[in-house]
Design a protein around this nucleic acid. Structure first.
Lengths: 150, 150
DNA sequence: CGACTTCGTTGCTTTTTGCAACTGACCCGG
DNA sequence: CCGGGTCAGTTGCAAAAAGCAACGAAGTCG
């Protein structure tokens, strides 16, 4: 993707520069699921090996994944989510939930539940001031701190 | 992307088949921001015209966008989000928030606020049983193989 | 009529992917 | 110590997708 001329006017664009291609989000999903080794990921996704190598190294460069040895005798590496990577979970979950609602039909592959009580979770917006959940229609967007107008 | 054999084992994969390419999410972001006409989108994103035409028609095919005339005398069309498309907002917001936190530094381009009180919003998981927000670390995923009445 | 606008399509070039074979480091059994 | 196996990539080449610029259609305006 061509550089948009310095800082993106929208954080979505910036985020997509890092994870916005056909495979990267799937690689991250695997990382969340515990699929962390090169061959494992490759087989799970059916991604070309060279492309996988490229995506992994970019994710490491961006600090989303971390490459670390998981055994010594033959040194083998795995790719683990960093805290920065783990912070992507709401995004992955949002994509999953959209697929559940609009694509999956009868067969919802995975449900997220509250660890302690087992209840399926909801993902929402919250206004701490009003102490209430906020529907998408009640959201307004405001320009943030000092930046040239669009 | 090759069909993964009928049922994706994960709704993320299914969702990405529809919106998981370099431009589509940006097109949707524009739709949310009110950028809805062909030339407007094309200029805003710098996307190639043929690619834009292709993405728009695919989004219409999938029922995420809707093509409708916005004037008659010369018939002109715009692309509007359907309810299905609007349902993607949590995903877009999650991507935006990640960019805000990890990429933008001091300079947060856009802030989402509660329409009625102006307070910045939070995006969280909620357990209605416990009536509490749930941190990502307290989320467990469960296979959801069977019908979960809609 | 010719110029201008909006929304694309067509043809061609460049970039990115996909594929399969190959390297290299290490282990193990015989 | 030799051949086979595993894991983590790399290399070279073909195929698919994206980028670019020019062209067209359908309508309005002057």
């Amino acid at each position: 993707m061509p550089d948009e001329g310095g800082l993106p006017d929208c954080s979505i664009a910036g985020t997509l520069e890092i994870i916005g291609d056909r495979w990267t989000i799937l690689i991250l999903r695997d990382a969340f699921r515990g699929v962390r080794r090169f061959d494992e990921i490759q087989q799970d996704l059916g991604i070309a090996r060279n492309v996988l190598a490229d995506r992994l190294s970019k994710l490491v460069d961006h600090g989303v994944l971390e490459k670390r040895p998981y055994q010594d005798r033959p040194v083998r590496y795995e790719y683990r989510l960093t805290p920065k990577g783990i912070d992507l979970s709401p995004a992955l979950v949002a994509l999953m939930r959209w697929g559940d609602k609009h694509l999956a039909g009868d067969d919802i592959p995975t449900v997220l539940v509250h660890d302690s009580c087992g209840t399926p979770l909801d993902q929402t917006f919250i206004c701490w001031e009003c102490d209430t959940t906020v529907a998408p229609s009640a959201i307004r967007s405001k320009p943030g701190r000092h930046r040239h107008a669009s």
